[in-house]
Design a binder for these strands. Structure first.
Length: 562
DNA sequence: AAAAAAC
């Protein structure tokens, strides 16, 4: 069988993806890179039916991206596909378009979806659903979004009526199946999207189970940004005679992204971020934190400082998540403070900036995060705030990307030095006041060196550029920061115990009832039976697991920024 | 170390 495509995806394809995933504004003027003079295939040459071509054309797209060129004809033939590509390459349209074509021939029966697309996050599932609506405009096909966090009965009703395309996250799909709302025996097309991420997130057992429920005789499309051995093993298990399509990652840090790194003390990070945002010409930006809790805190802080900001992480109500993302895409919110839920896959057109409020623990996540900007050949700027303990993660990132991130000072803030030790081994102290921590770092390390792996060789070259000594312009009062101290050094419950800092009166915060009320001011002293020596893990466990922006604890912000 | 995902 001859390959239905031309071999050469030029490595420069990132410069001109014609169809990107759910890009809100298509910018039809944005022609493919002019230097590629080869005769570019059009969508109509790929074998798609007229209603689809019309929908595509209406969005202003004329030329398929490399992955679309390669995948679409193949998928139309009913063959399996192994796609090594990530968002931004036009991958989503690469499978939605031919799937719509395949499915348009007949109708679905109740409870028996004809195709299934598995996505690792709810936002991605929604994005794919949007694609089906967009391109299925002139076809009479139905789809259902089966994800957690939303009414199950609505989803069940949809399924009862019969859907052609089922877009789902694994957890809810299995739940639905177990409740008998779903039969997968007639599902002939399966898409596993972002398989590497499914693996990272531990979804693979679920995915394997789901696949076992599908008929053997089916078409499978499998996408992953990387092809690690484990992913390869899965692909072998799920696919039959697949065509492999590899699109060079647009994420090898697109040259259109300008990266900068500011090394500041943990204490100065919020202030540093505000200064960077103000001095940059920020149109819209994602701000990444490593923890959901810190997303909440930073969101509150930025709101308080009058920034146009929203928050997004997995503990927030699903309706809020989608609504916030919509507002951000629509430009009603200019900053989006988020966890890594938004690091991969989510495609927001034309982000001017990405800020890493925290350095990501995994170097690849850095690439994914900053890859949200600088897309489609546009300029993007990515700023990372590092604190002294982040030295080794930063080095890992620089090793991965192959270049050092230029350091910048933040005007008006102290420049600090890397800590000698890895922050991880001292994680309990992360939030301790900088001065105190600095003193501890300076102390002899004999005690903690024993039995530990030796710290990596300090890299001579890039680590210590001579940094200008800049003193704080405005005197920032050294606050006591009670909340953080207590959280991190639980053994001694600090005095004063019942002092009540400025905060709304009780009763004005209905969400802090019962168990939850013990969150901060009561937390320490009121634990019965332990006296002042409460084991650290108990204090950690006592924090309620779920909180979102609306109920987020304001303590840290109030106390550090009063 | 943390994030994501099911009630």
């Amino acid at each position: 069988m001859p390959e239905p495509d031309e071999p050469g995806p030029a490595p420069a394809e990132a410069s001109g993806p014609v169809v990107t995933d759910a890009e809100p504004e298509p910018a039809p003027d944005e022609a493919p890179a002019p230097e590629e003079a080869e005769p570019e295939p059009t969508f109509s040459a790929l074998g798609l039916s007229e209603p689809l071509l019309r929908a595509v054309a209406e969005k202003g797209y004329t030329h398929p991206t490399p992955i679309q060129q390669q995948a679409i004809p193949w998928v139309l033939m009913g063959r399996d596909l192994l796609g090594c590509a990530q968002t931004g390459t036009g991958k989503t349209a690469g499978f939605t378009l031919p799937m719509l074509d395949i499915l348009s021939g007949s109708r679905a029966r109740a409870r028996m979806p004809r195709s299934l697309i598995l996505e690792p996050t709810r936002e991605l599932a929604l994005q794919v659903a949007d694609n089906f609506v967009l391109y299925g405009k002139y076809l009479k096909l139905t789809h259902a979004l089966i994800i957690g966090g939303e009414s199950m009965s609505d989803q069940k009703d949809l399924l009862m009526r019969g859907v052609d395309v089922l877009i789902a996250t694994p957890g809810r799909l299995i739940d639905m199946f177990e409740r008998g709302g779903l039969l997968l025996t007639d599902t002939r097309v399966l898409v596993i999207d972002e398989a590497d991420r499914m693996l990272d997130m531990g979804f693979i057992p679920d995915v394997e189970r789901i696949v076992s429920l599908l008929p053997k005789n089916r078409q499978t499309l499998f996408f992953s940004a990387t092809m690690a051995p484990e992913i390869r093993r899965l692909a072998d298990a799920f696919l039959q005679n697949p065509k492999e399509v590899t699109v060079s990652k647009p994420a090898t840090v697109a040259t259109t992204i300008t990266e900068r790194l500011a090394l500041v003390s943990e204490h100065d990070k919020r202030e540093a971020l505000r200064r960077l945002i103000r001095q940059e010409d920020v149109q819209n930006a994602l701000i990444f934190c490593n923890r959901k809790r810190d997303v909440d805190i930073l969101y509150k802080s930025l709101t308080k400082h009058q920034f146009s900001v929203g928050a997004l992480h997995g503990d927030m109500a699903q309706s809020t998540r989608f609504a916030t993302l919509e507002k951000f895409k629509a430009g009603e919110i200019r900053l989006l403070c988020c966890s890594d839920v938004a690091a991969r896959g989510i495609d927001i057109g034309g982000l001017s900036h990405v800020f890493n409020f925290d350095v990501p623990h995994h170097a690849e996540d850095y690439v994914h995060r900053i890859g949200r900007t600088g897309r489609a050949g546009r300029e993007g700027r990515a700023f990372t705030l590092a604190s002294p303990e982040d030295r080794f993660v930063v080095e890992a990132i620089e090793k991965l990307t192959g270049h050092p991130i230029p350091r910048i000072p933040v005007e008006g803030l102290d420049v600090v030095e890397w800590a000698e030790s890895d922050g991880r081994r001292r994680r309990g102290r992360k939030a301790a006041p900088a001065a105190k921590r600095a003193k501890e770092e300076a102390a002899p390390k004999a005690a903690r060196a024993g039995g530990r792996r030796k710290a990596a060789e300090p890299k001579p070259a890039e680590a210590k550029q001579p940094q200008p000594e800049i003193r704080a312009v405005e005197a920032v009062a050294p606050e006591p920061r009670r909340a953080e101290t207590r959280r991190t050094e639980p053994k001694r419950i600090p005095e004063p115990r019942y002092e009540r800092p400025l905060r709304p009166e009780r009763g004005t915060r209905p969400e802090r009832e019962g168990r939850d009320r013990r969150r901060d001011d009561d937390l320490g002293p009121a634990v019965v039976g332990f006296g002042p020596d409460i084991p650290a893990f108990m204090l950690v466990a006592a924090r309620p697991r779920r909180q979102h922006a609306a109920t987020a604890d304001l303590t840290a912000v109030e106390e550090t920024e009063a």
